[in-house]
Design a protein around this nucleic acid. Structure first.
Length: 103
DNA sequence: TCATTGGCTATCA
DNA sequence: CTGATAGCCAATG
């Protein structure tokens, strides 16, 4: 069983449109916990819900991919497969960065 | 309950 | 940009 926090994280991550990516910070903010990025990453790592939740569309705020439960390599492969340009293991948030909240 | 960990973020050098 | 430090949140042992 998962806590409400995790449950919410999954729902938000699922809302990430294909071809775009978001950051742990944005997800945390969407949850109502702007300072819960740590918990977001923890929730995803502790709750392997691939297929159901496109966790690969969540990257770090500095533009890097961060990590992936199935392997960073897989993350890059999935992102690139969606049309996202991954340069040197990094992504241009200015171009693919998606925000739940306007602004 | 306390200590540790984790797919992090922001600041300083 | 890289490396190191401090900080905050939740789950696990």
């Amino acid at each position: 069983m998962m806590s409400d926090f995790v449950q919410k994280v999954l729902e938000i991550v699922q809302k990430i449109p294909k071809g775009k990516v978001t950051t742990y910070r944005e997800v945390a903010r969407a949850l109502g916990v702007p300072k819960g990025w740590r918990a977001v990453g923890q929730a995803l790592s502790r709750n392997p819900h691939p297929v159901i939740v496109p966790c690969h569309r969540v990257i770090r705020s500095d533009g890097r991919l961060g990590g992936y439960k199935l392997g960073i390599r897989k993350k890059i492969q999935l992102l690139t497969s969606e049309g996202i340009e991954v340069r040197n293991g990094r992504i241009n948030l200015k171009k693919f960065g998606f925000r739940f909240h306007n602004g």
